[in-house]
Amino acid sequence: MAVTHALPPAPPLQRPRVLMVASGFASAAALMLFGGLLGIYLTRRAELLQAGDTWLPEGVTIPLQQPNVMLFTLLASAITMQWAVYAVARDDRVNTYIALGLTFVFGIAYVNMQSYLYTLMKFDVIANQQAVLVYTITGAHLAMLVAAMIFTAVMAFRALGGRETSRQHDGVSAAALFWHAMVVAYAILWYAIYITK
């Protein structure tokens, strides 16, 4: 008489990583946007300098302390965002919430410092094209940061509700991908706008 054995259960289906792919495309599009804006900025700056003029108008200064603090704040936020990915992949709920909360606080600190920097620069938007370019690029980056903060907040609520687990944590990973792209975009514009002036 033949002995039959029950087959083991099928492995659980892995969801497609749609959110990661979409976040990758959004990150690439945002980086291309900043590449185009910075290309226009650097071209206009080179043309003005070749004509013998100065890039910044008379009486306008861009301090370096605030952009440097903003850069280090975003670098610290990239570390805490990666900490959140690490923690959620190991079902460490407490560290996930702490890391996502700290990342959000770093984002708010960046917004605060950027608004303070705008009050210090005192560019006249109507009088010169330099102000339009600087405010367009930095404003676009501020919008990208706010979008990254909203994305992170949504994924934090999903984690709080138990939807982000060690087996399926694409949401936090996708938010981290977009967050890191935003940090890279700022590092590039920090050098192009604030350092080279």
Score class of each variant (00 low, 15 high):
L100D: 08
L37D: 07
W83F: 01
T80A: 08
L64G: 06
Y86I: 09
R93N: 07
V85K: 00
N68K: 10
D53F: 05
Q66I: 14
S77W: 05
P57V: 02
M81A: 14
S23C: 13
G107A: 11
G107K: 09
P63M: 01
A26H: 14
L117C: 06
T73G: 06
S27P: 07
L37V: 03
Q65R: 12
F25C: 15
L33V: 13
E58C: 05
D91A: 07
D91E: 04
F72W: 15
G36H: 02
D53N: 04
V94E: 13
T61H: 11
L33R: 13
Y97M: 13
A46I: 03
V111N: 03
G52L: 06
A78Y: 08
F34A: 06
L102M: 12
M70Q: 10
I108V: 15
L75C: 10
A78I: 04
Q65N: 12
Y41I: 00
L38W: 03
S77A: 04
E58A: 05
F34K: 07
E47F: 08
V105A: 13
G107F: 04
L100P: 04
T80S: 10
Q82L: 09
T61A: 11
L37F: 09
L75N: 01
V94Y: 05
A89R: 14
F34M: 09
T96D: 09
L75P: 06
A22I: 15
L117E: 07
N95R: 13
A99L: 03
I108S: 11
Q65E: 14
M20E: 15
T80G: 01
L33T: 14
D91K: 06
I98H: 11
T96E: 08
A78Q: 02
M81V: 10
V94I: 09
T54N: 05
F34N: 06
V88E: 12
P67E: 02
Y86T: 04
T80C: 08
G36P: 03
A87T: 06
G35C: 12
V18C: 13
L33P: 11
Y41R: 04
N68I: 13
D92E: 08
D53M: 00
A109Q: 08
V69W: 09
I98L: 15
P63W: 05
I62V: 09
A78E: 01
L117I: 06
L71W: 06
M113N: 11
L31E: 11
W55G: 00
L71V: 02
V105P: 02
T61P: 04
G101M: 05
Q65I: 12
R93G: 02
V111E: 10
A51P: 04
V18S: 14
V18A: 14
T103C: 11
A89E: 12
V88C: 14
A26Y: 13
T96R: 03
A46M: 03
A84I: 01
A22W: 15
S23V: 10
I62T: 02
A78F: 07
L102Q: 07
T80F: 04
Q82R: 12
Q66F: 05
T73K: 00
I108G: 10
M70C: 08
L71R: 04
P63Y: 01
A28Q: 08
V105T: 08
